[in-house]
Amino acid sequence: MYYPYFISYMVAGLVISLVVFIWALNNGQFKDQQRARYLPLKDETDEDEPPMVRAKKISRHETYALMFLAFAGLAVIAAVLFFALLKGGQP
């Protein structure tokens, strides 16, 4: 047999898939598909949703400071690109 490891993996994968598929078939997993569509929505309660809270002033300042740092980083990137393109990649 050519390449026994590869073929044995394919066979093992096929057998596992078939066994699980047959279990699913007999277990009714392919029935009631209309109800299955709604399953993610069934756990929806108000408790799941995070409450709306007003940001503290200090938190807003922190966010602006981080935004400033991030934009400064982007400006550095733009500068690197500009000089690299200007000099055509030559030192």
């Binding site: 598909q33 569509r37 929505l41 929806e44």
Partner: peptide, 17 residues
């Protein structure tokens, strides 16, 4: 994706089949 998108849209999955 199959969990988050229906939840965020508050809509059932288009087709479970």
């Amino acid at each position: 994706t199959y969990y988050v998108i229906p939840k965020a849209c508050r809509a059932p999955l288009y087709s479970h089949t």
